[in-house]
Design a protein around this nucleic acid. Structure first.
Length: 927
DNA sequence: CCGCTGGAATTACCG
DNA sequence: GACGGTAATTCCAGC
């Protein structure tokens, strides 16, 4: 890691340039990037890439961070890039990770592009792409978006391999999407990028062609959809049909997908996607690791290279083994699939078609990917289009924060708030099904979001995407996409775009409506696990990963030309039919904290409670092991399907001197547990406010990551600990009490994503964890390398690249997001590193846009969901050694055993998501 | 006829 | 490699 400062500087440069001169700046930077990329390509994949990628990440991450810091932090470039895909594209990570089998190199390139594409693509679409790639029709973002989107969700990478064949959806969709997206975008972008890197890599013109072809086709469909605006779904379908593959039964797909996946994913996706996927990307631990290290090295250069290379690299890397295999087998198909990537690459070919200009465009796009997208949006008839136009600066120039960036819900006078939360259950529909309608509010209407404090007359646009609801940092959900609903019953206009493989619904926020929007146009689409998991960069597991959150973002143009980005996420939404019917769900508890003596009754409200439901309080070690478990007494007479009255059990240690955070969950039987809820035990001597349940929130919340508050206590610990590595501050922020807890959990989960990361800075991670735990519990637990690692990596990642900024920025944002998020923060950081996109960006951007904003984030209250989400299976793995006593009564204990350490496994997911055990992590933190 | 659902049969996956 | 259980996906049918 070069000195943090150094990297940041670079970043800054980038950022500034980008920000200031949207296109031009971007272009220039991009060029740099590209160049590097090329370089990377030239370089041994592993080495070059890694280094590069790392830098990139760092950059990106830093960017975000940077952005935060007005001054330096913002390596905006990153952030900007981060926009999404870009960062991801930077893929460098991808590249890094994978390494680079010579063979794949070409493919790899493609991949990265894909990522780029998505972001860029959109932009491109609108702008040059179309022209350049008339054939493809890259409809502007929109068109592409539609179909591709779906695909994009998945990784393009997948596309190539898997998709080609069976995995229609996956490949086709995901990949295709991406590819599609990428194509359109890509092509342009790619070209540019590639020009440097890609072109070489994309040795195969054919591939490119194919890609191009694909793109075209895709585009067409997508476009249609876009045009049709209406429904993505439709487009998707089209795609599907087109692909044929999807239609094919899942089974086949999966199998194929596997192959395909491998191909696809690997590579890059992780990398590329990284940005987007970043979170997931992180998955590519190895890559990351490499990355992290790389970061250290020449940040800038690396970054640049990474950027360029990423794409390519990704392909190779991402795809890694599996992909390769697939590729091999399906080479042809692969190529096709890759095309998407190729798009980029293909673009290349297309690019060739496109011509240099296009490349230039791409570059521009890159920088302004987000912007571009935004811009494009305005183009649409939709109202918001104007807004975008109006505040082009905001949208355009400053790259928007990547979707996996953590942003505050409020800053200064502004606050983005969810006035009406969505129902806790919403059965998502598969592509093979018809729409299952828009997400509804528990009250019967629809969710409502409102931007407070905005007094301008310019309308704005609220972006909506489906985010994760696990312990980790909030990020786009790999297995779910927002689905645009249209029809008689829909009163809210919306526009669909795809960013970094993530569908984003843009909804106008009008002053005349008090900047309030009724979200009756958003459904949730479930992507096949097999399709997504195959993605190159995808680390997350789909199984039992059925909770999501609606994530709303608004980008507010500032007088200084920057853009302030705010984000708020909804409560978790259970999307599986089964889970919705069987799993107990805790929505609220009357009290969040209470003295260790216990004895007080609290009301737990939620769903699917049974008369024999059990409420278990659990204290988890950092590693996830259950240090203490106690079943709370429940008042059967008071039982209701939506509420339980339970008596707080006395804590195992009546002598604690500082609040200890634990978890509790409702259990309806084996494997039917709710997510862990946070609860804080207060020192006995502390004057407690027993009585008020509601009040309790305060303390609990504080500790609890869930909401905003961090525990005061916890924070320090975390902060310190976390901070240690890269950015203490940031870490701290992120770390917060909750965060820590969650982190562990999150970490674990994240681990998957960022296995490599682990390597990076396990120690650091550990520190964080340990510290926290120490403080309270006094348990230190050496976290298993895993958890710790994960965290570390993250932090590391961030740090390295853009140590300062990223960390800080990140943290705050994360924090803001939610407690849980805090945990996630760590992840994110890691993620970022891994996947360019994710990293820092969010924060950075904000900061960038609105320096001040970052602080505010903390405020981001809302999102509580985090808490529940926290399950950190991953962590469990870590714990192994820990001395902590384990009480695993529960089966869940998986936590403990799981040695998640490095990679992401399905289990992790489970953990993360819902599974029972996961909670443990949180505990750690709290402590 | 289409979209939205609720339910449930199949199929996939895991241990 | 079969077996059982659980989760994911696909199908159906009614409104």
């Amino acid at each position: 890691m070069s000195a943090p400062g150094e990297e940041p500087e670079f970043d800054f440069d980038f950022l500034f340039e980008f920000n200031q001169s949207d296109d031009a700046g971007c272009g220039a930077k991009e060029h740099y990037n590209y160049a590097p990329a090329n370089v990377c390509a030239g370089l041994p994949l592993g080495m070059a890439i890694s280094s590069l990628s790392t830098p990139c990440h760092g950059l990106q991450s830093s960017n975000p961070v940077i952005s935060i810091d007005p001054s330096a932090s913002h390596p905006s470039g990153y952030g900007e890039h981060s926009d999404n895909s870009n960062s991801g594209y930077y893929l460098t990570p991808t590249v890094r990770p994978n390494g680079p089998p010579a063979l794949e190199s070409p493919r790899i390139e493609i991949t990265s592009y894909l990522g780029m594409h998505s972001n860029n693509n959109q932009f491109f679409h609108s702008t040059e792409v179309e022209e350049a790639i008339p054939n493809n029709k890259r409809t502007p973002s929109t068109a592409t978006l539609n179909l591709p989107n779906a695909d994009s969700y998945r990784d393009p990478t997948c596309l190539s391999p898997a998709s080609s064949l069976s995995s229609r959806s996956c490949n086709s969709e995901a990949s295709s999407f991406e590819s599609n997206y990428s194509f359109p975008y890509t092509s342009p972008q790619t070209s540019p990028w590639q020009s440097p890197c890609v072109s070489p890599k994309t040795t195969d013109p054919e591939d490119g062609y194919q890609r191009g072809m694909v793109t075209c086709t895709i585009l067409g469909s997508p476009r249609h959809s876009p045009n049709t605006s209406p429904r993505t779904s439709v487009t998707e379908e089209n795609w599907l049909t087109a692909h044929n593959s999807r239609p094919s039964s899942p089974c086949n797909k999966r199998k194929y997908s596997l192959n395909g996946r491998q191909t696809s994913y690997s590579p890059h996706h992780s990398p590329t996607p990284s940005p987007q996927n970043s979170p997931r990307v992180s998955v590519t631990d190895e890559t990351w690791l490499g990355n992290t290290n790389q970061y250290t090295s020449s940040a800038i250069v690396a970054a640049i290279n990474a950027l360029t290379t990423d794409g390519t690299i990704d392909m190779n890397d991402g795809i890694p083994i599996k992909t390769r295999k697939t590729t091999i087998d399906h080479t042809p198909s692969m190529a096709l699939k890759l095309e998407p990537m190729g798009d980029d690459h293909g673009t290349i070919s297309p690019t060739a078609d496109l011509s240099p200009e296009e490349y230039a465009n791409f570059q521009h796009i890159r920088k302004g990917n987000l912007c571009d997208q935004y811009l494009s949006v305005p183009q649409h008839p939709y109202q918001w289009a104007k807004p975008k136009n109006i505040s082009p600066a905001s949208y355009m120039s400053p790259s928007l924060p990547a979707l996996d960036w953590q942003l505050p819900s409020h800053s200064g006078p502004y606050e983005l708030r969810i006035e009406v939360q969505p129902k806790s259950h919403h059965r998502a529909h598969y592509e093979t099904e018809g729409s299952r309608g828009a997400v509804k509010a528990s009250t019967g209407g629809h969710p409502i979001v409102q931007l407070h404090g905005y007094l301008e007359s310019e309308p704005l646009t609220v972006q909506l995407f489906i985010g994760t609801a696990d312990d980790r940092l909030l990020r786009p959900h790999a297995f779910y996409q927002v689905h645009r609903i249209t029809g008689k019953t829909v009163s809210t206009t919306s526009h669909e775009i795809i960013l970094s493989n993530t569908k984003v619904l843009e909804i106008p926020l009008l002053p005349e409506n008090n900047m309030r929007a009724i979200i009756d146009c958003a459904g949730i689409l479930k992507l096949r696990n097999s399709d997504i998991e195959l993605r190159k960069g995808e680390t997350d597991i789909g199984r039992k990963n059925t909770r999501v959150r609606l994530v709303f973002r608004v980008h507010i143009p500032q007088p200084n030309g920057r853009t302030l980005s705010l984000q708020v996420s909804s409560n978790p939404i259970e999307c599986s039919q089964r889970s919705a019917q069987e799993l107990p769900l805790v929505e609220k508890q009357s009290i969040d904290s209470f003295p260790v003596v216990g004895g007080k009754k609290i009301i737990v409200s939620g769903h699917n409670f049974l008369q024999d439901s059990k409420v278990v309080f659990v204290e988890k070690a950092p590693d996830g092991h259950h240090i203490w478990e106690m079943e709370a007494k429940t008042d059967r007479e008071m039982f209701k399907s939506n509420s339980l009255v339970v008596e707080i059990p006395p804590f195992r240690n009546q002598r604690i001197t500082s609040p200890v955070q634990v978890n509790f969950y409702v259990c309806n039987g084996k494997r039917k547990r709710s997510q862990c809820q946070l609860f804080t035990y207060l020192p006995a001597n502390v004057p407690i406010i027993k009585t008020e349940p509601s009040d309790d929130y305060e303390p609990a919340q504080t500790c609890g990551p869930a909401n905003h508050g961090l525990n005061p206590l916890a924070k320090p610990y975390y902060g310190q600990q976390i901070m240690m590595p890269p950015d203490p501050g940031s870490c701290l922020v992120a770390g917060f009490p909750t965060s820590c807890h969650q982190r562990s959990g999150a970490m674990s989960s994240s681990t998957t994503s960022s296995p490599k990361l682990h390597d990076l800075s396990p120690s650091a991670y550990n520190k964080c964890i340990t510290n926290p735990s120490h403080s309270q519990l006094g348990l230190l637990q050496p976290l298993g390398g895993v958890s710790a690692i994960q965290e570390v990596p993250r932090s590391l990642v961030v740090h390295p690249s853009s140590p300062d900024q990223s960390s800080h920025v990140m943290l705050q944002p994360q924090v803001s997001q939610h407690l849980s998020s805090s945990c996630s923060l760590g992840y994110q950081q890691t993620l970022y590193p891994n996947s360019p996109s994710s990293p820092v960006p969010s924060i950075t951007q904000e900061s960038t846009f609105v320096p001040s904003s970052s602080p505010t984030r903390t405020s981001t209250l809302g999102q509580q969901e985090h808490q529940p989400q926290m399950v950190h299976r991953n962590e469990s793995p870590t714990s192994p050694p820990l001395s902590l006593p384990e009480l695993h009564k529960d089966s869940n204990d998986n936590l403990a055993p799981i040695p998640v350490t490095i990679k992401r496994e399905p289990e992790e997911l489970d953990q993360l998501y819902l599974d029972d055990g996961k909670c443990s992590t949180a505990v750690e933190i709290c402590i």
